[in-house]
Computed example of a mutant assay.
Amino acid sequence: MQRSRGFRSKSRRKMTKVVREGRSNPITNRLQKFNEGDLVHITINPSIQKGQPHPRFHGKTGKITDKKGKAYIVSLNDGNKAKELIIRPDHLKLQKNE
Results as ranks from 00 to 15, higher is better:
residue 1 M to V: 14
residue 2 Q to K: 14
residue 2 Q to M: 10
residue 3 R to A: 10
residue 3 R to P: 00
residue 4 S to P: 10
residue 5 R to H: 10
residue 5 R to N: 07
residue 5 R to M: 05
residue 6 G to L: 07
residue 6 G to Y: 07
residue 9 S to G: 06
residue 10 K to T: 03
residue 11 S to Q: 04
residue 11 S to T: 06
residue 15 M to Q: 09
residue 15 M to L: 14
residue 15 M to Y: 04
residue 16 T to C: 14
residue 19 V to S: 03
residue 19 V to A: 03
residue 20 R to E: 03
residue 20 R to W: 08
residue 22 G to N: 03
residue 24 S to K: 14
residue 24 S to M: 13
residue 24 S to Q: 13
residue 26 P to H: 00
residue 28 T to K: 13
residue 28 T to W: 13
residue 29 N to E: 08
residue 29 N to T: 05
residue 29 N to F: 10
residue 29 N to W: 10
residue 30 R to Y: 07
residue 30 R to D: 10
residue 31 L to F: 14
residue 33 K to H: 09
residue 34 F to T: 11
residue 38 D to Y: 05
residue 39 L to E: 12
residue 40 V to C: 11
residue 40 V to S: 11
residue 41 H to P: 00
residue 42 I to S: 02
residue 42 I to T: 01
residue 43 T to N: 11
residue 43 T to C: 06
residue 44 I to E: 00
residue 45 N to R: 03
residue 46 P to S: 03
residue 46 P to Q: 02
residue 46 P to K: 05
residue 48 I to T: 06
residue 48 I to C: 04
residue 49 Q to D: 00
residue 50 K to H: 13
residue 50 K to M: 09
residue 51 G to N: 06
residue 52 Q to H: 00
residue 52 Q to L: 00
residue 53 P to R: 00
residue 53 P to C: 00
residue 56 R to V: 14
residue 67 K to P: 04
residue 70 K to E: 15
residue 70 K to T: 12
residue 71 A to F: 02
residue 72 Y to K: 03
residue 72 Y to I: 04
residue 73 I to K: 06
residue 78 D to P: 01
residue 79 G to V: 06
residue 80 N to E: 15
residue 81 K to N: 13
residue 82 A to R: 09
residue 82 A to K: 11
residue 83 K to T: 08
residue 83 K to L: 08
residue 85 L to T: 05
residue 86 I to C: 04
residue 86 I to N: 10
residue 87 I to W: 02
residue 87 I to N: 04
residue 88 R to G: 14
residue 88 R to Q: 11
residue 89 P to G: 04
residue 89 P to F: 01
residue 90 D to C: 01
residue 91 H to V: 09
residue 93 K to H: 15
residue 94 L to E: 06
residue 95 Q to S: 13
residue 95 Q to E: 12
residue 96 K to V: 10
residue 97 N to H: 14
residue 97 N to P: 14
